[in-house]
Design a protein around this nucleic acid. Structure first.
Lengths: 177, 177
DNA sequence: TATTGTTATACTCTATAACTATA
DNA sequence: TATAGTTATAGAGTATAACAATA
């Protein structure tokens, strides 16, 4: 169920061991040796998982191009967004909300702190946990990211039209339930 | 843009530094300290990328549970399927069609050969390339996989209904173009 | 006892690049 | 020169498990 963003899924017809019966080949006049032919996906393209994976790869690629100058990856953006919307949130909550493993989140937050975008503060109510905040620099970067990502979202929406985007979001949500 | 399969995205309301103004708190009668409150996704849930990623994770998890007894992963399934549908295909074609890097494909094929599911044969027409085939064991496993994955597909379709599944596939395809 | 953050390991996957043998 | 397959490396991400501090 790997996905591709390369639509040129053709191959040399000659390389197939069974590209059709001898009668088939006689009926369809033989092309040059280098003639390209689309490969058979064997029903893979009717699978929801394959389709949703291909779409995810395509959307993420556009996302990554949109914010390439910032070096921010999708998971980092989602973490910054959730912290900004819920200042003082603790790591365990971010982990649960976004489905990022605790141990993984530690490493990402280390990097965000090193870049001066987020910080861990002491929590008043639970000395085990950290209260997460964006720094002013983190707030500014997030504002800038949201501009670029807004354009990205408009590009994605343009492929669907406004009412079909809403329909897609609803259908995807139903797959998760 | 990380995704979760955990719908319990709630946190202790107490841990927010700014869970609302003092007036707000007075207006909404204060709950017990352990009262849970949903976190604010800060608009993340309106992003196509976030939604499509969450859906992809959810669908793949169901897929993986469906075939857990075989130790087959989505990429392996897609490779087996494409080889079965196009016997004699060469590695570069599989790589292009499925968007798997050449070097990565080498490793996966090594594993499939070691498990006796696929084999590399000499190509008649280009001594650089290999003609890929499933072994009889590979054919049998793929048939069995298709039964399990058929059930998986029906579970996914049941969340959508038949006409909405077709609509979803169309919308996802439009995102890729 | 359970939770929070941390550290570590193994594995999957992507991206990149070099290398060989063929074309 | 370009392509097919191979090998290697670095980085991102998942899955697990152990551990200390704290609840």
């Amino acid at each position: 169920m790997a996905a591709t963003d390369d639509s040129s899924v053709e191959v040399d017809a000659d390389e197939f061991d069974r590209a059709g019966s001898a009668a088939d080949r006689a009926a369809r006049p033989r092309q040059r040796a280098r003639r390209q032919r689309a490969i058979d996906f064997g029903g893979l393209d009717t699978h929801v998982g394959y389709a949703v994976r291909r779409a995810q790869v395509a959307v993420f690629q556009d996302f990554l191009r949109s914010v390439a100058n910032t070096g921010i990856r999708p998971a980092q953006f989602s973490i910054l967004t959730v912290i900004a919307a819920n200042p003082g949130l603790k790591q365990a909550d971010v982990s649960r909300a976004l489905g990022i493993e605790r141990g993984r989140l530690v490493l990402v937050l280390n990097e965000l702190e090193k870049r001066g975008l987020a910080r861990r503060a002491a929590s008043d109510i639970d000395r085990r946990s950290h209260a997460l905040h964006l720094t002013p620099k983190g707030e500014r970067l997030l504002a800038q990211l949201n501009l670029s990502i807004g354009e990205h979202e408009r590009r994605m929406s343009a492929k669907l039209g406004p009412e079909d985007k809403a329909r897609l979001m609803d259908l995807l949500r139903r797959l998760v339930d």
